[in-house]
Design a protein around this nucleic acid. Sequence first.
RNA 1: GCGAAAGUGGCGGAACUGGCAGACGCGCCGGACUUAGGAUCCGGUGGGGCAACCCAUGGGGGUUCGAAUCCCCCCUUUCGCACCA
Length: 832
Amino acid sequence: MADYTPSSIEPRWQRIWSERRCFEVPDLPERPRFYCLEMLPYPSGRIHMGHVRNYAIGDVMARFKVMRGFDVMHPMGWDSFGLPAENAAIQRGMHPKEWTESNITDMRGQLVRMGFAYGWSRELATHRPEYYRWNQWFFIQMFRRGLAYRSLRRVNWCPECATVLANEQVEAGVCWRCGTVVTQKELEQWFLRITRYAQELLDDLETMTGWPERVVTMQRNWIGRSEGAFVDFPVEGGAPLRVFTTRIDTIFGATFLALSPDHPVARDVMAGSSQATDVERFLQEHRNAPVGEKLSAEREKAGVFSGRYAVNPFTGSRIPIWIANFVLMEYGTGAIMGVPAHDDRDFEFATLYRLPIARVIATGDGTDPPLPFTTDEGRTIESGRFSGLPRGRARQAMIGWAEAHDFGQGSVQFRLKDWGISRQRYWGTPIPMIHCPACGVVPVAESDLPVLLPEDVLLTGKGGSPLQTSPTFAKVSCPTCGVAARRETDTMDTFMDSSWYFYRYLDPANTTAPYRPELARAWFPIDLYIGGITHAILHLMYARFFSMVMRDLGLGAPGEPVARLVCQGMVLKGGAAMSKSKGNVVAPDDMIEKYGADVTRLFVLFAAPPEKDLEWSESGIDGLHRFARRVWRIVDAHAAAVAGSPMCARPSGAAALELRRKAHQTLTRVTDDIDRRLHLNTAIAAVMELVNALYAFAPAEEGAEAMSGRPDEDRAVLGESLEILAVCLAPFAPHLASEAWELLGRKDLLATHKWPEADPAMLATATVTVVVQVNGKVRGRVEVPQGADEGSVLDAVRSDARLRGTVFPDGGGRIARTVYVPDKLLNVVIAA
RNA sequence: GCGAAAGUGGCGGAACUGGCAGACGCGCCGGACUUAGGAUCCGGUGGGGCAACCCAUGGGGGUUCGAAUCCCCCCUUUCGCACCA
């Protein structure tokens, strides 16, 4: 008997799958299609257990659908632009491209060794010009449609390194590299107008039933739609101030206005007033506050009186204008009306600075709750002609009044902001724009794409955009008028790269278009997309946005690219995410060496359902190793004895019939668990049960000799059951399953073998066990023919000596009623 | 603070539509085979009485013939957002 040696089995099958191109699909599907996608990795150097889990889940689905006869698009690629490559370059003097390409080679090898069924001919890497030229092309299309524009934006700035910092590079308010306190600076940046699609992005969420509820909720909150109104407050001796409010029904209680310290008129409002020096000091302090602190809700409220007054357009009363640190410039208009009686924040602020508090909402039952009263109940009071209205009616009436008198209008605001894509980084897609002194900002001619990332740059981690250090890159002549002009030296946010890559897989070699639209029409939407919950908001929002834009560009994209989304949980060790800094990393390569790829796959799939976090456990993986060896031994022991046995659909022996039932029931369970429920852990549990049943029927230790003395039908059923075992295992442990298939004498490839249908006759049993309850408590069980009616079950209960006394205490006189669920349960209710 | 998800044996988890709680695996206990076992196989394993029975799915209430599952309140944990006017 040979040992189970994954180190010799696995590479052989990997070679066969690759040589026979088992997982390559035609550009246009010829059979029913299934697009199975996993989030592409950043090529950091090594795959980790999180990747293994993510890709193992996708691989089960892809392999299963291949066997079910689908044309399965199951591609893999590399999200290969990004900061780590640049840092590696700075630290080790290696070019980012060299570092990235070498990592890709290593990681591809690791994925192959895991036995994942990718169509590698479609592999892409986003740092390659043949890919990123289409980022540039999309950018230009968006620019032409007004979807890309320039604007000032505050960025994190390290004065020591003289460089822009990404949010991740700001640690507790200081520069990650040199520890200097990070300040803010305004720079001209490129933006994509995702807000144009805000309403559609929100509306579609209602229909996205294939997405996890929590992701839908997160996206809805992120879009953050609120209905309200703009109101202009006249300012004494100045231009009116516009505020946004969702609570215009409380406007009669507005006792102050508050401006964000970042509001463009904050400085002007107080010019010449007696408060000028106080305001100046306040603004100065605000500007110097560390970035992290500035946005925190726990921050103490603070403000300063501007010295000016505005007029409430509804009441005509004079109210002070304050500048307050809790007012955000980024939302609404950067100015608010303060209604302390009906807003927690305004209340806190008014209390702090002793501003008046005026109740204008009452419940009308004489038991008005204490202020601030912020719920949506009640009616207006002290609100002039609008008094006595329910909140909703008051809002309508007041907006109408403001519109009629031309000092306000109803409006919808979104929390979602336009997407700033400029990065002052090297390792990204160059933004294909040219700054011409005569024509302004113009796009590079499409025939000149791609704008190649220059090689002759200095990477120091200091200073502005690295592309500026190239002696040749920025010098260009204007594509419109020909005069000397300057090339844009910023690069794109790498989220651009990952927003549409799943379309490029369809047509990765296309040199004249990002892809052929008819291919998108044939393959989209993606049937199953699997990835980490960390991308629930940004990546998936951008991907949806891009898909809408691509649809509107006539590229055959559906508005929503992903039909079903699965977010797998994290892989933990010792209760914490595996990370280098914690030193709790388990390397997939070590696991392959120790247990093999199949066992590693089985473990990550068995230990927890896909959506839950998975706690790594060494003894847990031992259990799966044992299981794999059990499978191996039972196949190895009986393969010779069962080879060539004809099928036996209706064995006469009880044990053989029982085994055949078990095999076909397992097939049904596994099929349903994978296809409908995506409960991969219970699918594996079902296969384990089948293996246990096989051992009970024909222990491996007795081997071929014992089987040779058994009836033909035993050998036939054993052979069939072993084949079903191989089939059921094929998506999870494909190498072991393929090897078993071959041992059993099958000449075709299991990976592309047709997934069988269970024999319906084996799914039903002649008799069923019906649970007998008294008043809902289990009192026993009876065996009855399947489909038996209530009377027969009661007869069975009466003929059971033990049950009779419990169920019919005085011959049945006190039975109030019975509840019968056919083939399942009989509940006898006995009156007290 | 707001929002979402989850809470089941010693552990990971199962129980699909309200119908036998604890599938499957780990661990543990016992047995077989053995010079030996950290290999393998077989059996046992929620708790209490050790028998018929009783108790048990974070806690408390409710709906129901029947609740891990549905409803209400509370507790705990995790995640997301965090002054969004």
